[in-house]
């Protein structure tokens, strides 16, 4: 059976490179499932978990920003940061979440609010991914 080579790349180096049967991720315009043989595609990703499935295993990666580039045999995810569940520090994520929540509720100015919301999303995403793994 055909497989997809998936590589997740961040500015700090590659995170994962492996063969999978299916990739499902959340793009800005909705959920996207990719199987081998997909037409070339580029789509921006939201802060979310990317699920990578192969016959007998499944991985999930917390992705922050970035986009996915699809070719028939290869999927590349370029993100500002990407973490495997084993790399996520759940306590730190919890603290970041609380901090971000406080900032969101404090009624800060537009830019600060936007940043706090992004930070909150990232923290929630990390916790989510850790729990699902």
């Amino acid at each position: 059976m055909k497989t997809l080579t998936v590589s997740v790349v961040t500015p700090d180096g590659p995170v994962i490179e492996n063969n999978y049967d299916m990739v499902s991720c959340k793009t800005e315009s909705g959920e996207l499932g990719i199987l081998p043989g997909h037409i070339p595609l580029v789509a921006p990703l939201t802060i979310s978990g990317v699920r990578l499935k192969s016959e007998n295993s499944a991985d999930i990666i917390a992705v922050n920003g970035g986009f996915v580039e699809v070719r028939p045999e290869k999927v590349t995810i370029l993100a500002q940061s990407a973490e495997l569940p084993s790399d996520i520090d759940i306590e730190r994520a919890q603290k970041a979440k609380e901090r971000a929540e406080r900032r969101v509720n404090s009624g800060a100015s537009d830019i600060d609010l936007m940043r706090a919301e992004l930070a909150l999303q990232r923290a929630i995403n990390r916790i989510d991914v850790k729990e699902k793994a």
């Binding site: 037409i39 070339p40 595609l41 580029v42 970035g66 986009f67 580039e69 500002q80």
Partner: peptide, 19 residues
Amino acid sequence: TSYEYEPNEEEILEVLLPQ
């Protein structure tokens, strides 16, 4: 490579170029 863009080129550029 000529890609399909989801949703469209402009919005991809919006994300991609700052990055």
